[in-house]
Write a protein that binds this DNA or RNA. Structure first.
Lengths: 347, 347
DNA sequence: CTGTTAGCGCATTCAG
DNA sequence: CTGAATGCGCTAACAG
């Protein structure tokens, strides 16, 4: 089968005996084209199988109507929600999305950034990879005036708008909850402390201990990459501790669940021997037994807000200062994995 | 801060006193440019902050180096694996990806197809949405000679290459396993039977029953959309059945797990009262208690293969027939949720 | 090995 | 309300 030839506005113009300029305007509903001509143009375009050439348009207009998104991974409940939220808002505003994942690798993140740059995205929404500590690869965007928005895993030293939750407060709250349930010795399993997310969760945990009258013990901090494998290793480490903890606060649900299951396999009772709390309200937290106490925050909303903030910047009357950072709400979801007291009370 | 002006190959040419054509060639490592000139060009480009304009290039070459991907959803373990596999292969081959999700809505799938078409993707990889039964929205690609590859949820009546597993065989195998564990009455929970995936799983189940000497009973088929909500409803329905089943084969893990948890909440023992098996080997299947027996198939590999098949088509010496469809391997993963016999034996 | 030339399809200024 | 003319930046003949 022969590939059909592309139809251009010139072809339409010729067919209708008008000029290409008129066709171009008619196609984009320019007000200065008569209703009738416009109608004829649309009909001809339809009939001839015309398709808009966005490359020519982009080249001409020096704009792409494309937004780049770089995230650590797509395959988490939080992230795919966030992306769904962005897609909705940006599509409605007439933008397309190019999505790529850094797979928690700063090198790949840099390459992704180059691709986005060369694709001349009109704006960029980023959640940083695990180890990224500096953002020279994003500075070219800032220099060229291309709006850059961070969400969740943000770069704190930049002027860019950032959409986050209050990780400190969430961690403080959930740790306080564990203390309220009677935990005296609480281990914290978390990720690289140099990023905003895990550092703040750690700080919230630490301060909650202090304010709860529990002395902070270095032994109680386990830092890894929060994979499920890490959860199992952490469980081993915990079982080997001289002073065994009676509570664990893990900075993500995946790791929390695998840690919990490992502990259970070794005969530990959860929450009686050790109470456990996670972070993210991943669906997995509702499947694990006992169900996992965790922090809920809305990925979809975060995506929407990030996208809206970006659109503000794109349309923004420059000079007018726009809200720089937004802190969205979170919620502590208390489930069985941490309910020491309530168990005693109820049974 | 002033946005910097764009540097073009003309600027580089002027700076080096050579022609733009030479710069263009040098930049893409054309063999007919001396090593020395090439080096000077790269250095100048670097120094001047040049960035390649893919729109101009695309416009000129009538190619985009972009591949479109349309899938039902991104947020399943299988799908994000598949996409990771594609991304790897296609990136290495110099292609970019535009990804979009139909959210199981044929209407959105159609819109996505239009976007891809207007973005002039060089090729398209598709897994169909739940209800899609006809593909007029993809015919324009075929007409224009743009390679189209289906994977997993394929369109069976098309000439397009398809990458799948043998759903029939997998379902047959896992049902036979349930029968081997002593199940006499096995319910099948599945999705819309008009798509290849769920129809074949149903047929495999039905034939396994027949070959296992179990009479096929219409009552035992529950069709829904396989969400976790559907799993709960299915559990209710099962509990209301006059003849209660002793086995359930669910066409996806998510639904299987929520069904299993609902049954457990109602006091059913799994696997003793009812054995359960799922499909997909989703991480959730290893978290649920008991661990879920399921079918493993490799999303990553499927993505890689789909991408490679596409690349073959793109480079393909036309006329040479290329393998049209590929059937990848699957594996039955037996876990506790279906081990009636073994339990008896071991304890 | 390098240069000249032309045009990909569209949007926009300016002139009617 | 419409048309003529120009160029966005790059690539690929073709010609040295």
């Amino acid at each position: 089968m022969q590939p059909e030839k592309e139809v251009t506005i010139y072809d339409i113009a010729k067919a209708l005996n008008i000029s290409p300029a008129t066709v171009s305007r008619g196609l984009k509903d320019h007000s200065a084209i008569s209703k009738n001509t416009r109608k004829r143009i649309f009909e001809a375009a339809q009939a001839m199988g015309y398709r808009f050439n966005s490359f020519a348009s982009n080249l001409r207009r020096q704009k792409t109507n494309t937004i780049g998104v770089i995230v650590p991974r797509l395959n988490s409940a939080f992230m795919s929600d966030a992306i769904a939220g962005m897609e909705k808002v940006l599509n409605e505003a007439g933008y397309n999305l190019i999505i790529s994942q850094s797979l928690e690798d700063t090198g790949k993140e840099e390459k992704n950034a180059v691709t986005m740059f060369n694709s001349r995205v009109d704006g960029l929404i980023v959640s940083l990879s695990y180890n990224t500590r500096a953002i020279p690869h994003f500075e070219q965007f800032i220099r060229r005036g291309i709006p850059l928005i961070f969400f969740d895993r943000i770069y704190e030293d930049s002027e860019c708008p950032s959409i986050v939750i209050n990780n400190y407060e969430a961690a403080y709250g959930i740790t306080t909850h564990l203390i309220g349930e009677g935990c005296k010795r609480i281990v914290h399993i978390t990720g690289n402390e140099s990023g905003n997310v895990y550092r703040q969760r750690f700080e919230g945990y630490r301060d909650a201990l202090k304010d709860g009258g529990i002395e902070w013990d270095k032994q109680c901090l386990i830092v890894n990459t929060l994979t499920s494998g890490d959860g199992e290793h952490a469980a081993e480490a915990i079982l080997k501790m001289k002073r065994r903890p009676d509570g664990i606060f893990v900075a993500n649900d995946n790791c929390a669940v695998s840690c919990m299951l490992s502990l259970k396999r070794q005969g530990i009772k959860v929450p009686d021997d050790i109470a456990i709390a996670g972070f993210n309200n991943d669906p997995i937290s509702r499947v694990a037994e006992p169900n996992l106490t965790t922090i809920d925050y809305k990925g979809y909303e975060m995506g929407e807000v990030a996208a809206k903030t970006l659109i503000d910047r794109l349309n923004g009357t420059s000079g007018v200062p726009i809200t720089n950072s937004l802190i969205l709400k979170h919620e502590i979801i208390v489930r069985d994995s941490s309910l020491k007291n309530s168990r005693t009370k109820h049974r």
